[in-house]
Nucleic acid binder design. Structure first.
Lengths: 335, 335
DNA sequence: TTGTATGCGTTATCAA
DNA sequence: TTGATAACGCATACAA
């Protein structure tokens, strides 16, 4: 696939490449007629500057990398949607890579994407990432970096997250006010920021309403396909009257499990879980959910990253942006 | 963000860049000791070849472009998942762009991605694309191109699709055998390949079982948010006993509409629609669905595109690959 | 106003 | 076995 270059134009028009380059870039001192000729020829032959050559020269790629655990997870695909919207508007391309919840894969993918000279990186940590030295290194080298959703305390950096504490708090508060006392919690992996914050919100709500905390009511759950069913089975034995699913992905599988078991919701069991608005609207039965701002998160994170890349003063100091979740009450969870 | 280059290694080791390059590439004639030194230094300082420089030299980017209508649609995100898996394994990156079902946006996005010198393009047409001269032009220029899911008859090219005819046929057959006669069809836009094939399957099944075709039972539906409810309302007036939703995306909104109206499924109304396996498993009520092989489609399309890019003989002649859909019967639709 | 030369990182060709 | 040089496409400092 041969594409026309500056050289081709120069040859065709009997000019030097620099003249052509200047004409194309609308440089200050250039003969109007020459410019016209060049532009005309360029247009006619569909000239487009080779971004690879530009990247090499300017040491930038006008592309950002996005590392997420799974694309085919509605939270992340919705977030990517938000990222893409911003990137597109600001003239950047999006290079996507999945860690598949694996630490090793995450490290390799980040290395590859960085090797491509992306101008910055948006990352949501894999479920098995606890060591983040690979990211610290990049931050130290000055690569613009914005974490979203699954962040790490071990690095001082730009972060965009949902207000998981508040989200969990209000969900538990709602359940307590509906007369629920034994609220089981199915959480994601314990070291993840989202898990910790949601657990904190859970505990805070219990404490505020004088409901005793029972360790037995908490289970952590990996991403394996049969994990949720097993863990919910464990929790079932503790005879809870409500189930708080502290993870987007688990909420959906839990729903399937409870249906499979024929458990009457919300009477027998009030299910409440994190998810994103689109999923809640489309798929969920009319149960109460904590809606996460997935699109907005992608949107905000990408905007911040691009500000950072373009050295906008607004993005100078590290900040953690917290986005509101929304408690969508769509059916009484009254006992 | 400075990264170490061949030049840096050469300078540090008092060698020429060509020697270093040869040592790194394990070239034929090179002193074992020199090689050891270079490799050691490279490893220690995390040398990685600059893919942009390579791209410029080799006139290839090792990146493929993917143009889809919407990322945050489970069919496409699942397909992208399949694409990414293959691309990753074969050393390519994936640059993603959404047309948002707009022809204009599709044209612009394709232009941009091609300007990035992607080595090939995977495309699923926007809902409003009828003129495909922008793609013909690229194909003529020799850019490797593979269409998937939403393809066009107007171009002779590699295509990967679901067997929409058969899928629709078996769904309608199933409904008829369950005693349904007035099967309404909610279709996507009429010019889309998927719509036409599914409609053909619908008609063929009716005809085979001697059920008269009634134009009144067909409605075409754009992607606007309130369209499905309106169109289903229209269809409702024709007093159907089953509803065949010939589109992934519409299936979900239709489900929501029917629930909202409190219609008893599947007794009063047998709903059957195209969707993908993951969605069917997780979200769908136990209704019969035509499961689309989204992941597999991405997988197959990406593999074919990369074969094409790498000029594997298997990919020489144009072919249309049809993937089987699966009728997942999970509750009796018996009248 | 235009042309020449240089460099971005890498590899291939040719010379030593 | 190693080094010098050119080339990929572009922009720019400098020369004319």
């Amino acid at each position: 696939m041969h594409t026309v270059t500056i050289k081709d134009i120069a040859k065709a028009l009997n000019l030097s490449t620099s003249t052509v380059s200047r004409a194309l870039r609308d440089s200050y001192e250039i003969n109007a007629e020459t410019k016209r000729l060049v532009l005309e020829y360029a247009h006619k032959h569909h000239y487009h500057p080779n971004p690879i050559a530009l990247s090499l020269k300017e040491n930038r790629s006008r592309a950002i990398g996005v590392i997420v655990p799974e694309i085919a997870n509605s939270f992340f695909s919705e977030a990517i949607n938000g990222i893409e919207a911003i990137a597109y508007n600001r003239g950047y391309h999006v290079i996507i890579s999945q860690s598949h919840e694996s630490y090793e894969r995450e490290v390799v993918n980040i290395r590859q994407v960085v090797a491509r000279r992306v101008d910055g990186l948006l990352i949501s940590l894999s479920g098995h990432t606890t060591d983040i030295s690979h990211l610290k290194e990049l931050a130290d080298k000055g690569l613009p970096l914005v974490f979203f959703d699954r962040v790490s305390d071990l690095i001082d950096c730009h972060k965009v997250v949902a207000d998981n504490f508040k989200g969990a708090f209000s969900a538990i508060e709602h359940l307590i006010q509906s007369g629920r006392k034994r609220i089981a919690m199915l959480a994601s992996l314990p070291w993840l920021s989202i898990t910790q914050e949601r657990l904190a919100g859970y505990k805070a709500a219990l404490s505020q309403y004088g409901v005793p905390f029972d360790e037995q009511l908490i289970r952590y759950c990996d991403f394996g396909a049969d994990e949720p069913e097993k863990k919910i089975g464990d929790l079932w034995l503790t005879q809870p009257d409500a189930l708080f699913i502290a993870s987007d992905r688990l909420a959906l599988s839990s729903l399937a499990v409870l249906k499979k078991w024929g458990i009457d919701m919300p009477t027998k069991m009030a299910l409440i879980g994190f998810t994103n608005a689109k999923v809640a609207d489309l798929f969920f039965p009319p149960l109460t959910v904590i809606s996460q701002p997935a699109f907005e998160m992608g949107h905000v994170a990408a905007d911040l990253l691009l500000d950072l890349i373009e050295k906008k003063p607004s993005a100078l100091s590290y900040q953690t942006i917290k986005l509101e979740t929304q408690l969508i009450i769509r059916e009484s969870t009254q006992l």
